[in-house]
């Protein structure tokens, strides 16, 4: 299966620095259509006008957290099976379990490097 690098990718993080880091790394990996949101509710609004092929989201955001966003996305009538990667500093076992139960596709603990990001994306999207 080939990965369509023209797919819409949504990055969600309340830290602009992290949005830029992930955005730049994605561009280096060849993804050219990358949108940004600064919390879960903003991201959910963006789902109304676009179909996304990948979501990369932080957990700790207000007013809507990454976990709540994940639950809402999985409950959408369409686009609900989009690969959803949580990128977060929350690294307790119970966090990972909660994310898995909510349907997360993969989980990256901050700080991370480009190699880890690519490996996780390959695991959810396939080789590219």
């Amino acid at each position: 299966m080939t990965v369509d690098k023209n797919m819409n990718v949504l990055i969600v993080d309340d830290y602009k620095t992290m949005l830029r880091i992930i955005g730049n790394l994605l561009k280096q990996l060849g993804f050219s259509h990358v949108d940004e949101a600064t919390d879960g509710s903003m991201a959910l609004e963006m789902f109304k006008s676009k179909t996304y092929g990948l979501v990369i989201s932080d957990w700790n955001m207000e007013p809507m957290s990454g976990l709540d966003l994940l639950k809402h996305v999985r409950a959408l009538p369409t686009n609900n099976n989009v690969p959803f990667v949580m990128v977060t500093a929350e690294s307790k076992t119970e966090n990972v379990i909660a994310a898995k139960q909510a349907g997360v596709s993969n989980y990256i603990v901050k700080p991370f490097n480009a190699e880890t990001l690519k490996a996780k994306l390959v695991s959810v999207l396939g080789e590219f």
Partner: peptide, 19 residues
């Protein structure tokens, strides 16, 4: 690009220290 990637990775310190 390899060196720029290393700089970008290192910049994530700001997110962690900020939190």
């Amino acid at each position: 690009l390899g060196e720029v990637t290393k700089i970008l990775e290192a910049c994530s310190f700001q997110d962690i220290t900020g939190q």
